[in-house]
């Protein structure tokens, strides 16, 4: 096998490449029991769109915070959620929105 071909067969480790990309529709997962998470309660179960991948990959600081092995690094994503999705009675413009960084393990495809 040529050197170039060998490089093309390299399999990247878990977490090295972002799973989601800009434009993907996602839902923030609900976790139980509700614990000391970096995901605020008000976005649990809400739907949004990936605006961008935040680089570089980062440690899972929830696991690390509890002194557990945080595993491989993964990406945070900048997620866009309309304020009308968060608050059904939202009084401002329908274009108003939230941007929030969410770790990969909290995102579900929707």
């Amino acid at each position: 096998m040529s050197a170039a071909k060998v490089l093309m067969t390299v399999v990247k480790p878990e977490g090295a490449e972002p799973i989601f990309k800009a434009g993907d529709s996602v839902r923030i997962s609900k976790r139980f029991p509700i614990g000391h998470f970096r995901v605020p309660n008000y976005i649990r179960g809400k739907s949004g769109v990936v605006e961008s991948v935040i680089k570089p990959a980062a440690v899972n600081n929830e696991e690390e915070g509890f002194g557990r092995n945080a595993g491989p690094k993964r990406h945070y994503y900048r997620i866009a959620i309309p304020l009308t999705e968060l608050w059904p009675k939202y009084a401002g413009s329908v274009d108003d929105g939230l941007r929030i960084e969410v770790f990969e393990t909290w995102l579900e495809r929707s």
Partner: peptide, 12 residues
Amino acid sequence: VEVRVSDSTSMV
């Protein structure tokens, strides 16, 4: 004008 709120929760 769109109001865009950025909530800082972790590394950003």
